[in-house]
């Protein structure tokens, strides 16, 4: 009983956070609402018995990824945005689409009964269970995902290291350091680096 009340409570917080995320006009408030959504989702996972997933949800999403969101918003110094009326297409297609989606989900859940659902706290979510699933049953998808992430990291490194910086390092390593009064202005230094 207590579990059910807590489950509904955190579900309500989650939905409220999601709505607030859309309504707020300042990006930092939206980011904070997203953190609330993620944290309450973690609480839901915990109530269902998926402890490990709950902890990872908080550590990875709320604790790391959202920090980067907040850093970006702070760095860009993004201000409050203006409310617009919204496009007519969004209203004409989006609202009926969302309604159809909600009806479909509700209909499936009601007609299928409880086949796809799990009892409160009964999800096999201990670290041991997750490890067995990841490293036995789903080893190949797991490893492929890790390679995908590695590719993304390498792509980020390539994008972040600008060609001018590499060129400048190149010239500096080949030429002796000029005296301060002889030092050329930076753009020319970059230009000479590209000729190599």
């Amino acid at each position: 009983m207590l579990h059910l009340i807590l489950f509904l409570f955190f579900g309500a917080i989650c939905v409220a956070g999601a709505v607030n995320l859309l309504v707020q006009s300042h990006p930092i408030n939206s980011a904070l609402s997203l953190i609330v959504v993620m944290a309450s989702l973690a609480a839901e996972y915990l109530l269902l018995g998926a402890e490990f997933v709950a902890a990872v949800q908080v550590i990875v999403y709320a604790g790391a990824i959202m920090v980067l969101f907040v850093i970006t918003i702070m760095l860009l110094n993004a201000g409050a945005e203006q409310h617009t009326k919204g496009s007519r297409v969004a209203i004409l297609i989006g609202v009926p689409g969302a309604l159809i989606g909600a009806v479909l989900v509700a209909w499936t859940l009601l007609t299928r009964g409880h086949t796809g659902s799990v009892a409160m706290g009964a999800l096999p979510g201990s670290p041991q269970d997750i490890a067995r699933l990841l490293f036995h049953e789903f080893l190949l998808p797991f490893e492929i995902t890790s390679v995908l992430i590695l590719i993304a990291i390498m792509g980020a490194v390539v994008l972040a290291s600008r060609p001018e910086a590499i060129a400048r390092r190149h010239t500096e390593s080949h030429q002796p350091d000029p005296l301060p009064q002889e030092r050329q202005p930076a753009p020319q230094l970059v230009g000479s680096g590209k000729e190599h």
């Binding site: 930092i28 904070l32 953190i35 944290a39 973690a42 402890e51 490990f52 709950a54 902890a55 990872v56 908080v58 550590i59 709320a62 604790g63 790391a64 920090v67 907040v70 850093i71 702070m74 201990s126 670290p127």
Partner: peptide, 25 residues
């Protein structure tokens, strides 16, 4: 006593950074 105790500590401390970051902003 939680069977994911260590992860809980790490998770909560990782949330603590918001206090500092938001104070700065």
């Amino acid at each position: 006593d939680l069977n994911i105790g260590l992860l809980v500590v790490l998770g909560i401390t990782s949330m603590g950074v918001y206090g500092v970051a938001l104070a700065g902003w």
